[in-house]
Every structure is written in structure tokens, then in C-alpha cells.
């Protein structure tokens, strides 16, 4: 369904130009979940935004490769086609729900905006918005949808973000650090919810995270990004239990394990990674 082929992305121009993404390739089949793991600055978020050309150009420059969605190159689409793709076929959930929702519009109007763009056939907007909110586990959705974002807790806000992304039945959900900004208990709830939804509707997912700890049980495959390149790629079980690349090993070593007695948390020694 989605196939990224030797994609490279640069930022800036002239001598200040830096390559953020270096010649990466991966693909996602319908209904499959790929986890893109790496530390901050490794280029994973840039990759996620690039899938629908959401990066601000300039400074971003797509310097090579192609992004094929259902056989068509996203990088060659017209603005109108891109708008149909965004939200309609590929939807996003971002890291910081408190700033990612527009503070001056109600939950209902923000979800309704997405519906009006991609599913104009929906006539009873209130019912559809309530159905979406119900899907992500929001209690009393017909009342909650008239709330403003600041009236909801962080976990509820992220649920709204997910509901908004799912409202238009996308084929691919890009979840960019969906739980990083949340409390640990809320993180678990949100991940459970996402797992549940995955079972209910057939939808592919790109889960972008720095945390190897959350991908088990949700991702089918894992790609590890390091300094703009994919250094390891394989099924989740394979990568977690038998990592090949030293960076992956180091990252997995950083997950604190319950019951293990260790004096210090593991850190990564970058000098050995080249």
C-alpha cells in the first residue's frame, strides 16, 4: 500500500544544508503496523511528516527517492490531491495533544471539519462525531463533544486526536510519539485503546517512537533509525530478541527491566557507533 523508496530529505540551503533523512526505504502493507524507532533527531518524525508532504518547504527539500501510496508518487501530487490524501487516506496523531488541538474551537467543530473535507456524504454530523468519540473510549460523547480542548485532561485530549484521525476512515494512521507527553498510566490506557481499535477496524499504522518498551504487542515489524538512516529492519520479535546493529542493541539495553538489579541506567556510547 505504502512504499518509500530511497527517500532523502535535506534542510536548508547552501553551506548550512543538512541531510535529515538519508536514502531510506520501507513499506507498509494494508492492516500492518510498522514501528519506526529512534532517538530524537534521528529523522523519524521528519519521515512521518514527509509521507504527505507536510514538511515546510523551504527549509525542507525532498532531494531524492519517491513515496508511493497505492502506486502513486506523493511527491508528484498536486496540492488538491495532497489535501485529499491528508486526513482522508493518511491521518496523523501527534505527540503533544494539549497544543495540537486548536484551543478556540470545540471538539465537535474540529472533528466536523475533518468530516466535511473527506466524508461530505455524512449528514448527521453530531451522531458521527459521537460515534468517533465513543470508539476511542470517551464516556458520554454527545456531551463531551461540545467541550473545548482545555476542558479535557491530557489523556482525553489524545483520545480526541485519535478520534479525529479515525473519523475519515484512513488507510494509514501515522502516530508520532502518541503517548510521550502523557503520564505513564495514561500511556498504557491509550496504547490499549489503539490496540483495541486496530482489532476493530482494518487500518495500517506507522508508530513513531523513541521507546522500544511500547512497541511489543502492537507493531508487526520494526525499523530502527539512526542519524537519518534505517540501520535495522525486521519483525518485532526478531529485532527485540536478536538485535543485529550495535545501536539497536544499545537502545534495547536502555529499557529498564522490572526485577533486574542494576545500579545504573544504561547509556549509549556513541563513539563506538561510528
Amino acid at each position: 500500500m505504502l512504499s518509500v523508496r530511497s527517500l532523502s530529505i535535506d534542510f536548508g540551503s547552501g553551506p548550512a544544508r543538512v541531510q535529515a533523512v538519508k536514502d531510506i526505504s520501507f513499506s507498509i502493507a494494508p492492516g500492518e503496523t510498522l514501528a519506526l524507532v529512534g532517538e530524537s533527531g534521528s529523522g523519524k518524525s521528519v519521515t512521518g511528516l514527509a509521507l504527505t508532504r507536510l514538511l515546510q518547504e523551504p527549509p525542507a527539500v525532498y532531494s531524492g527517492g519517491e513515496i508511493l501510496f497505492e502506486g502513486r508518487n506523493v511527491l508528484k501530487m498536486s496540492p488538491a490531491e495532497l489535501r485529499r490524501l491528508r486526513g482522508g487516506k493518511i491521518a496523523y496523531v501527534f505527540q503533544e495533544p494539549s497544543t495540537s488541538l486548536n484551543p478556540v474551537f470545540t471538539v465537535r467543530s474540529q472533528i466536523a471539519e475533518a468530516l466535511s473535507l473527506h466524508r461530505p456524504e455524512v449528514s448527521d454530523i453530531d451522531a458521527e462525531v459521537a460515534r468517533c468519540l465513543d470508539l476511542v473510549g470517551i464516556v458520554d460523547p454527545s456531551k463531551r463533544m461540545h467541550d473545548y480542548p482545555h476542558q479535557l485532561s491530557g489523556g482525553m485530549q489524545q483520545r480526541v486526536m485519535i478520534a479525529m484521525a479515525l473519523a475519515c476512515h484512513p488507510q494509514l494512521l501515522v502516530a508520532d510519539e502518541p503517548t510521550t507527553a502523557l503520564d505513564v498510566t495514561v500511556q498504557a490506557q491509550i496504547l490499549d485503546q489503539m490496540r483495541l481499535i486496530k482489532q476493530q477496524i482494518k487500518m495500517a499504522m506507522l508508530l513513531i517512537t523513541h521507546n522500544f518498551g511500547i512497541i511489543g504487542g502492537i507493531a508487526d515489524r520494526v525499523a530502527v533509525m539512526f542519524r537519518g538512516a534505517i540501520v535495522e529492519h525486521g519483525s518485532t520479535a526478531e529485532v527485540l530478541h536478536n538485535p543485529q546493529h550495535p545501536y539497536t542493541k544499545a537502545l534495547i539495553g536502555c529499557i529498564p527491566q522490572l526485577g533486574q538489579r542494576r545500579r545504573r541506567l544504561t547509556t549509549i556510547d556513541y563513539s563506538t557507533l561510528g
Binding site: L54, P79, R84, R86, G87, F94, E96, L101
Partner: peptide, 26 residues
């Protein structure tokens, strides 16, 4: 530059509507 503008663009809202609805009201 705010995050919610990125959200709006990710929903498929056109630049003009982003400006006239989301940016202008805030």
C-alpha cells in the same frame, strides 16, 4: 508556527482555510 496548525494541515485543510479559520481566530 503552533502545533494545531500542523494538525489542521494534516487533516487536509487548505492553506487559505488554515489562515482564515485557524490562524485568524487565534
Amino acid at each position: 508556527g503552533q502545533d494545531y496548525i500542523r494538525t489542521a494541515r494534516a487533516k487536509g485543510v487548505s492553506s487559505a482555510v488554515v489562515l482564515l479559520r485557524h490562524v485568524l481566530k487565534n
